[in-house]
Design a protein around this nucleic acid. Structure first.
Lengths: 119, 119
DNA sequence: CTCGACACTTACAAAATAGTCAGTACTGGA
DNA sequence: TCCAGTACTGACTATTTTGTAAGTGTCGAG
C-alpha cells in the first residue's frame, strides 16, 4: 500500500459506490433507516437479487449497517453508518448538479441512444 | 421521456461520468487543456483504446472539446467546456472526500480482495 | 531507409456487471 | 388449505464494459 492507491479521490468514491444502484440506496437511506422490502419498492427498477447483493457489499464496506430483529418471518432494517453518512453528505452537491442539469443530461442520453440506433 | 429520467441527481452524473476513466480525464483537464498523448501518460493505466473511446464520448456529451490543429503528424488537444467545468467543480468535494478517506477506502478494497481470494 | 511519435481504428477476447427464475423456511390471514 | 409476504440464496444467462494486439498514414531524427 505504499503506492498511491488512487490518483484522484474520485476513484476512491467509485470504489465504494461503483454499482448501478448503490448511490440510490445511500440516497434513500440518508432519509432514515429502511426495511429491505421498503428499499425494493423505493428503488423501483432494481431486481431483488441486485438489491440484496449491493446491500451486502455496502454492509461489508461499512457504509450501511444491517439490523436484524431476529424474528420469523424476518424483519431486517438498514441504516447508514457514520462513514456512510459522511459519504451521503459529500454526495449532496453532485445530486444537486444532477437535479439542476437534469434536462440537459436527459437530452444527452437521448442523443446517445439515437446515435446508437442509427449505427 | 415524460417520466422522471432520474430518481436522484446522482444518476444523471453517473450517466455522464460512468466509465472507468472518465472522472480521471475530467480531473486532469480541470488543470488545463492537454494533448492526447499527455493524457495517456497522466492516466497511466488506461489503454489507448479506452482513452480515445472515453474522450470521444465526453466530446459527444459536450463535457470536453476537441481541438484539432490539422497538422501532419497530428496534433490534437482536449479541454473542458463550460458544462464540463461545472461538473468538475461539483466533483471537487467528492475528490476531497476520497483523498481524506483514502486510507480507509484502500483498506476496504484490500479487505474485499482478500475475501475474494479466500472464496 | 528504418524507426519512433502522433492520433487514431478495428477485430476480437476477457472480465465485470446485471438479469431472470426457481427455491428456502416460516407465519398469518382468507 | 392455499396464498401472500418476509429476507434471502443459488444456478444460469445476458449484457455491458474493458482490455489486448494489431494496423493506418505521415513526418522528422538518426
Amino acid at each position: 500500500m505504499t503506492e498511491a492507491t488512487f490518483q484522484c479521490g474520485l476513484e476512491a468514491v467509485l470504489a465504494i459506490l461503483g454499482g448501478k444502484w448503490k448511490p440510490l440506496i445511500v440516497y434513500h437511506l440518508a432519509g432514515g433507516s429502511k426495511r429491505t422490502g421498503e428499499l425494493r419498492r423505493l428503488v423501483t427498477k432494481v431486481s431483488e437479487k441486485m438489491l440484496i447483493q449491493h446491500l451486502k457489499e455496502l454492509t461489508d464496506d461499512g457504509v450501511i449497517r444491517r439490523i436484524d430483529y431476529r424474528k420469523v418471518p424476518p424483519h431486517v432494517e438498514y441504516e447508514l453508518t457514520d462513514f456512510g453518512r459522511s459519504l451521503a453528505q459529500v454526495l449532496a452537491p453532485l445530486c444537486e448538479w444532477g437535479t439542476h442539469h437534469n434536462a440537459e443530461v436527459a437530452m444527452i442520453v437521448q442523443k446517445r441512444e439515437h446515435a446508437a440506433r442509427v449505427a
